[in-house]
Write a protein that binds this DNA or RNA. Sequence first.
DNA 1: TGTAGCATGTAAGCCGTTACATGATTGA
DNA 2: TCAATCATGTAACGGCTTACATGCTACA
Lengths: 174, 174
Amino acid sequence: MRQELPSTSYALLGLLSFGPELTGYELKQWADASLRFYWTSPAMSQIYTELARLRELGLVTAAGTAPGRRHAISASGRAELRRWLSTAEVDFPVLKHSVALRLFLGHVAGQQRTRELLEEYVDRLAARRVELSAVQESLAGQDAFRFPSLVAEWGLRYYELEAEIVAELAARLA
Amino acid sequence: MRQELPSTSYALLGLLSFGPELTGYELKQWADASLRFYWTSPAMSQIYTELARLRELGLVTAAGTAPGRRHAISASGRAELRRWLSTAEVDFPVLKHSVALRLFLGHVAGQQRTRELLEEYVDRLAARRVELSAVQESLAGQDAFRFPSLVAEWGLRYYELEAEIVAELAARLA
DNA sequence: TGTAGCATGTAAGCCGTTACATGATTGA
DNA sequence: TCAATCATGTAACGGCTTACATGCTACA
């Protein structure tokens, strides 16, 4: 590894590091149930492109042929993932918060419309919480998923507190 | 506007909607003091590219020539911004949380190293809070910046609560 | 029999970054 | 006079998305 790979590569490598061999399709499902909540769930096409690269670099091995082919992290994949986790600098989390952007521009849309927007967001947060709850429950208690479970908990608390803050902001616009 | 512009265009248009005419350079400074905290502060080069596009579309007008040229939002710019704010669908906020990703992969780096990582993050959150506090104080009380000030408050509370959650997670890994 | 899910990939194209290049002004 | 700040842009390139294309299997 001369060059650092994009973080998304490491995220996928990380999903494979839990053990089970996965098809690209399954990888996407795992991403949708985990990465989606605090990272991004890459498009299918990107997963296949990424897998091709990881195979070429020998970080991932493929068993079988084209449809149904399962991927496993290789020894050097594990090593590279560990190297990345221990040496790569950690970016401060990046938020693309379209709701905050709209509140920022509240003078354009008006106080009323902006308040509605915040209230809609509170509802969407509740819906998200339900989704993540389901994930969390499926992980809880399983030792292999101890860390993913912690992240899910974190996410749940975040959604909860975010909803509280936003509800309060909305009230102040009433 | 047949096609929607990228949200970053609207963010910049939004910065201009506060009134003062700005150079590209100044726009970057405003972005660094506001957008950065809940969106992204675009690279200088992108700001200039974006301004060129907005000029071509007539959403922004430029006074004077090349160096020192100031940009103002035009009437149609204001209309388009309003249109976007009232009709465009609002994406659920996207988080690229490298710390959460690393906690998710805690089994690879180990509990000890992961705990340290979380503690470092708590420190960085505190530093961020200081930065945003400075911004918030410069906005507070000014009526024109009522909404930006609300967003800054939101950000501050978020950083605070995030730090609490993370500190607790770290403690549980001890 | 037809639709939903499993499964994999290519192509086009935009967004945005880093690197590079240039030059004026201001103050130590 | 030198460095920092103001100021503007081009070029190369990577990441990622959407659209497109293909085909199998299970099941209602």
